[in-house]
Design a protein around this nucleic acid. Structure first.
Lengths: 215, 215, 215, 215
DNA sequence: ACAGACGGGACTGCCCGTTCCT
DNA sequence: AGGAACGGGCAGTCCCGTCTGT
């Protein structure tokens, strides 16, 4: 029995994230996290000096998982538009449909208003996500598959829309119903730019979806 | 000296909201709220049977304040477009720029994922707000000042955008900088519909803002 | 069920003393004391603000019990020598033979070297005990039943002997064996003063005890 | 660089004693002792298998120091009475006036009530001390410088008095004030036996001390 | 032998919601 | 309405003993 699991810090961060996602952060005790990771609370303090530290670690875990998932999804895709579409789908799925992530991130948003370091940590993550989207969008623009005027601004608005939909979906589930997922992706794409007529024959852009691309 | 202020329940709800807005809900104790309201903790239980009840009451207080403010603002305005614009401005100011409201509502969103009654309460509020916006938007449409295809859907998206901007603004303050407020209102209006050329001479819609109305 | 036992502080102090007497003070947790008193730890802090406070309260409890016992024993006795003898017997029994008291007081002695307030508290108790003994001894001297030169000094030495016997008895049990108790009392009395020949016919001073009165 | 100081066990025992003497045993951590000895905690376990073992070693260290000091003091003295007097002086100094020793021994007394091995260890030390005193006293008796009836019993009482004075001195410092040290030694000698008139002309037994030799 | 890190257990002090009594 | 008391729970801390590597 190795006394030192080589990845104990990561294991604890994962356990913390999972518990935080399932309950309110304030309602998750360190004992609970420790038990979930198979250790005791005292051991947590070998790796993190406070619950606050562990919250930050859980955030980092979330970042890593999100980015790893995204990069894994698009690694084998070469078509710019398809790459963007897949990432949008993933964003909708992760941010909107996954209840645990929604709960965790919402709590983090609330904490960000009180703790500078959490806000800074999350801001950095948001920056990297935005850069990624800007890159993806610029690539699509270059390929001529999307008419984008100002990629930075468009991405900002699109990301805001994702967050807004996430929140409202809690109260108005019809917004993010499963059969709406494709509509959402198209709506978000429309915020980024206008799809040229030549590509609208694609099955994903049938005429009956015109009303959505209006936004 | 009247031992019982005539509106003690309301006074408590207000004190609760103010404290919740300033701190995390979990970090606000009943003692604190009671002290803020000038009574003692035991007295709270004469009016609310638990802290949970008080949270709901704080929500209601927030609803009432919000709606009262909105109705007060537009009571004396008759022009449909101007009415809508004023409400949008108010929404931006209350939801985006007021830090206390942002903190409180974000916390409530997190709690909504755990407690059905809070979610139901907030959903009802959101319904009323949406109905209001739909009414305002329909009036503007009728007056021909805005081309709106599907008022319900457009309002949904616009409200989602407000929430999203609120959240992202925490991490990317440039989104909601003071000098961006007018841009935000126009952007939200653009989500609702297209401004016909005839009204674009209005000082609020100078040509240099064209890029924003693109959305 | 009365929520507030009228003597909760005393009850807690008693429970604390009893637990401290049975274990090492450091090995007694507040939970244990609380459980012994039929409450939970949180309630202890309604009455005592720290474990240290509770230790002081346990000391006071010990003082009160000791003094109450002594006063109860001699209340009905009028003969000065008999009064003194009874108190000596009680001292030997309480301080020397009762294991719990021995353990508790020894721990307190150790703590007294580290904490001024405990030392001050115990010093006050010792003062009152000495005053009591000085009074008893002076009364016996007045009655001519004992030749005492300097009551204060004699009492000091006698009390020191009691403490010393208590300590040594832990390692050399023969010192305080049950059948030695009468010898001990006579030895202590001898430290206080010389018994005049006229009273030595008393059954307590049979000739075979002469060797002890030699000290 | 010799990794193993040749007397590491002794060094650790000394460091342990010194730390125990300065704080409460429970408040001294192994890390602290190790640091004081210039090593780290892990190394302690190469020599002692537990903290308990180290406490016993600290006791032994104390024994050795005490006995070495005593034997060193009297090695060059031949007069029996002077030998006894010097040892008494040393006892008073070490046991009564040295605060560290007082703290350590008092703690050990408390632990002795809980742990048989500590009690046994200390009892053995006490036995050797008693034997030494009995020998010293018998020698003085043989030389005719002291009238002793029962050396064993007298030594027991005298040692008890030392311990008692030690304890009471914590609370009533006047008992062991510096200028009282000579009085204490004479008082202890008086417990051992009666100084024959022929030796009372010694400067140490001036007539004004008669009141003390009364005991 | 020594060093450092880790794991585990325990406990204090504290907070806070809730209830009861006045 | 006030306020004391109660009970549950938890974070942070401490420290012992073990384990691994040097």
């Amino acid at each position: 029995m190795p006394r030192t699991a080589p990845y104990m810090p990561r294991k604890l961060a994962q356990a913390a994230f999972e518990q935080f996602a399932g309950n309110s952060i304030d309602n998750v005790s360190l004992d609970q996290i420790a038990a979930h990771a198979g250790v005791t609370k005292g051991s947590i303090y070998c790796h993190y000096k406070s619950k606050h530290d562990l919250i930050l670690a859980a955030c980092s875990y979330y970042y890593r998982c999100y980015l790893a998932k995204v990069h894994g999804e698009i690694a084998a895709i070469t078509d710019p538009l398809e790459r963007l579409m897949r990432v949008l789908e993933l964003s909708v799925h992760t941010c909107v449909l996954d209840r645990g992530s929604r709960a965790f991130t919402t709590e983090i948003f609330a904490l960000s208003l009180l703790h500078d370091d959490i806000r800074a940590s999350w801001a950095q993550f948001y920056d990297s996500v935005r850069e990624m989207y800007v890159g993806l969008t610029a690539a699509v623009k270059s390929s001529g598959q999307l008419e984008v005027e100002d990629p930075c601004h468009a991405v900002d608005m699109m990301l805001a829309a994702i967050e807004g939909i996430k929140l409202r979906a809690t109260f108005e589930p019809h917004i993010a119903a499963n059969d709406e997922q494709r509509h959402l992706v198209r709506g978000l794409l429309a915020i980024l730019g206008r799809v040229p007529p030549s590509t609208s024959q694609d099955k994903n852009f049938a005429p009956d979806d015109e009303r959505i691309t209006r936004n």
